[in-house]
């Protein structure tokens, strides 16, 4: 399980970084999105006490055994990070389209490189 997760994160990060360094705005935004997924998985894997099929929230009342619950904090963090990442990516998309409209090219520098 650890191997699969770390491989997934590694593949996402490497493709994300490669795309981020490409000259087209569309590649940059996809690269940022992939990096975002990788980071979210990474935050999740950093939980202190991860158990599959266990609830993340404590029940009130009787004393309970914390070992039967999974760490709730990474889930809250990932949720926040997803929302913020979604919003900023949408905003970046708008700017990307504006840049495309104003400069007539999708190169990140707003003009085609001279050959």
């Amino acid at each position: 399980m650890e191997l699969v997760l770390s491989l997934a994160i590694g593949v996402l990060v490497s493709s994300g970084v490669w795309l981020l360094l490409r000259p087209r705005t569309y590649q940059v935004i996809i690269g940022l999105a992939l990096l975002g997924y990788a980071v979210n998985l990474f935050i999740f894997s950093m939980g202190r006490h991860l158990i599959i099929n266990a609830p993340p929230v404590l029940e009130g009342g009787d004393p309970i055994d914390p070992m039967t619950f999974t760490d709730p904090l990474p889930q809250a963090l990932v949720l926040t990070a997803i929302v913020i990442g979604f919003a900023t990516t949408a905003l970046f998309l708008v700017v990307l389209l504006a840049a495309r409209g104003l400069s007539g090219t999708d190169h990140v520098d707003g003009r085609e490189p001279e050959r």
């Binding site: 981020l20 705005t25 940059v28 940022l32 900023t88 905003l91 970046f92 700017v95 990307l96 504006a98 840049a99 104003l102 400069s103 990140v108 520098d109 707003g110």
Partner: peptide, 10 residues
């Protein structure tokens, strides 16, 4: 502004 903004946001 949009060009500089694109870099800034990225």
């Amino acid at each position: 502004r949009v060009k500089a903004g694109l870099h800034y946001i990225a």
